[in-house]
Structures are given as structure tokens and as C-alpha cells.
Design a protein around this nucleic acid. Structure first.
Lengths: 193, 193
DNA sequence: CGAAAATTTGACATGACTCAACTGGAGTGG
DNA sequence: CCACTCCAGTTGAGTCATGTCAAATTTTCG
């Protein structure tokens, strides 16, 4: 498994020496997920924080009518998990499923606590990660209030151009909060006019 | 200014001894806001984290048509600010305005850094605060995807019963992402059956 | 290659918005 | 304390954005 992306990702925010990097890597376990396999299911407890070394996943809920609502996508270089469940040990309300064959690097809560103890600056790293996620979610709420479906789609494509190629429209629609049929119509209008 | 609510709020998550509590209070400044006064305006830098000792505020953006989009309300016992601006020094995209005469306890970034240094467990406190805010925002995104306007209003009232009495409907509509006219119609239907 | 899923398209239905008129209460100045 | 004004809230008519259903077509994956 390729661990250099993980070290590079962490290196963006904190400096680790060779010994710290080695210790850190020793606490992560690789895990492979086939396309359509689950990293987490609604009702389970999320036991790890997960760095995506390769591939693509979605975090989503299912409503009583069976509709998917996607809270986030994750690709190489991103972290995914259900923080609430991970921290509190409560059952998760979300599914996490691979959209492509995916490779993860996982750390469990005990190992993360150990890491904090032995490399305290990693607390800072995860705090920064959390701050960035919080800010991104705040911005998404703002957009869901301020923009109509066409505007939200435009922002999505502008912000994540790669996703437009890589993720099926149906999934993007479930992220934007519209139906796949309506997204198809929006795209047609965009192209025509 | 009443500081006991602040100590109580912090005490819910970390234990402070008398000396630490005294130091902590010495780093907070009281600030009073009249109804309709601004704690922060779009384009300014958010220079403090703010604990609400009394009163009620809204955090919102204004779009190009002059419509308000409310990201959160805050009442006694809550913290408000623009975290992105506070942490990075960038200009805020949000306004924070008092809905009632309000009393705040403010701490600036330098003083917060000093507090972290002298009372390290306060880092833990603010991390917990951030986690809770993150989780709440995630849940709000999920609801905005999964529920229609009536459902979102129902959840809002269920989750924050006090706000229903205290906050004008127009503001609640701007939080839910619907027009005040439409909210009025939803309430009528709810009451009639 | 063949089956299943994703996407497109069109007709129709509904949720939510706009505009405008009206009502009622809260704040203000005399 | 009254009269006035000004918002917030209500109501109804008409419109627009988005959803539903169903069928045809294309793409993907096994």
C-alpha cells in the first residue's frame, strides 16, 4: 500500500521527523474495499478514522423511502469516517460505501489516542482537519440556502471539477439534493444555452 | 456581567480549579449589544470568540438580491463567531447581529493562545465545542437533503422549542431556506390539521 | 456479448415562490 | 395616553422550480 500520500498530507500541516513518521505509519492498517463494498453501515459503530490512499467513497444516509442523501464524497488524499460515532461510540446514522475499488489507511481510536500521546503535534493536525471540515460544511449550508439547483450544480463543478468526470450523475444529484432526472435537464440547458 | 454561566458551560466538559477559573475570566471582556447592533459585518475580520451570557443573535449571509440566509442562531450559553475568519484572519462572509439586547463575553485570538498555553485543557474544551458544531452542521445538511420544508420546520421546533416562541417567523424562515409567506402557510396547515 | 444500471426525454403533478392587499401589534413621538 | 407609523404576519391568485412516472436509449460491468 502506498503510504507516501498520507505522509505528504500530514506534512502539509505539521512537520514530522523520520522516527515520528515511522511510528505513525506503524499505527495505520491498510484496508482494501471493492467497488460497492461498505466501510461502514448505518447502525454500526465507526471504529476508525480512514485516509483514502486510492479510490473514491460516498458517505450517505437512507431515508424511509429508500432515497440516498449524500453528505460527502471522498477521494485520494481525503479523510472519511463518522466523527460522531467514532468519538462517542454511538451507532452511526450513515453508510460509507466505495464508488470505486478503494485503498484505505485506517487508525483505530486506541491507536489514535496512543499517537496523540507519543506525537502530540498530531492533535494539532486533526484539529486542523476538523476545522477545515467544519468550515466546508458551513459553506455548504450557506449555498443550500442561497442557491437554486442550477447554482449549486455550477458551484459543485467549479469547486470539484474532477468529480464531474468521475462520479455518476445520479450520485451528484443525491449530493445536491435534486433528482437525477432534474439534473439531466439542468445539464441539457447548460449545454444548449 | 454574569460570568457564572460561562464557568458552568466550560465546567460541563473540563474541570478547572479556582486559580484557573480566575485566570480564564481575566482574559474575557464583556460586551453589550443593543438589539439590531452588529457583532460582525461581512468584510470585517472576526477578532474574537464570543460566549453569549444573555440575549440572542443570528449569523447570516446576504446574497446579491439582499436576501438573508441564516446559518445559525445563538442564545445564552452558546458560542458564536466566524471560525474561518477568526483562525485565518481573512474577511468574513457573514454578518452577526443581535436579535435582542445581548451580553457577550469575548476573548481575542492572542488571549486565547495565551489561555491554551497556561491552561492546556482549554484546548480540549474548544476541540469539543468544534466537534459538536461540526456534528450539528452535518445533521443539518442531512436534513436539508432528506426533508421538505414542513419536515424541516417540524424538526426545528422539536429540537429548539424555545426558539419558536422567541424568534420571529421571518427569521426562522430565513434559517429553514423558505419564504416567510410560505412558512405562514405551513403553520396554518399544521394548526388546522 | 448480454444484463443491469445510468441517462435522457416528454407529459404531467406538486411544492414553493412572487406579488399584492390586508390585518394587527410594537415602538415612537407628541 | 393617544395617534401614527412601520414591520411582521396572513391570505389568495397566479407562476415557476422541481418532482414523479414511464418509456426509450446509452453506457457500464460482469
Amino acid at each position: 500500500m502506498n503510504t507516501s500520500l498520507l505522509l505528504q498530507n500530514i506534512g502539509n500541516h505539521v512537520q514530522l521527523d523520520a522516527g515520528e513518521a515511522e511510528l505513525l505509519l506503524s499505527l495505520f492498517q491498510p484496508k482494501a474495499l471493492k467497488r460497492k463494498a461498505f466501510l461502514l453501515r448505518q447502525g454500526e459503530v465507526c471504529r476508525s478514522e480512514n485516509f483514502i490512499a486510492k479510490g473514491c467513497v460516498k458517505v450517505y444516509s437512507l431515508d424511509e423511502n429508500g432515497f440516498e442523501h449524500i453528505l460527502m464524497f471522498g477521494i485520494e488524499g481525503w479523510w472519511v469516517g463518522d466523527l460522531l460515532s467514532f468519538l462517542t461510540g454511538r451507532e452511526s446514522r450513515y453508510h460509507i460505501e466505495a464508488l470505486e475499488d478503494t485503498e484505505l489507511l485506517q487508525i483505530t481510536k486506541p491507536d489514535l489516542d496512543q499517537l496523540y500521546e507519543r506525537v502530540p503535534k498530531m492533535e494539532r493536525f486533526f484539529r486542523i482537519l476538523l476545522q477545515n471540515a467544519f468550515i466546508a460544511h458551513m459553506e455548504r449550508i450557506n449555498q443550500s440556502l442561497a442557491l437554486d439547483a442550477a447554482g449549486r450544480y455550477g458551484e459543485f463543478i467549479r469547486k470539484y471539477p474532477a468529480f464531474g468526470q468521475r462520479i455518476p450523475q445520479k450520485q451528484i444529484a443525491a449530493y445536491l439534493g435534486i433528482t437525477p432526472v432534474f439534473l439531466s435537464m439542468l445539464r441539457k440547458k447548460l449545454i444548449e444555452g
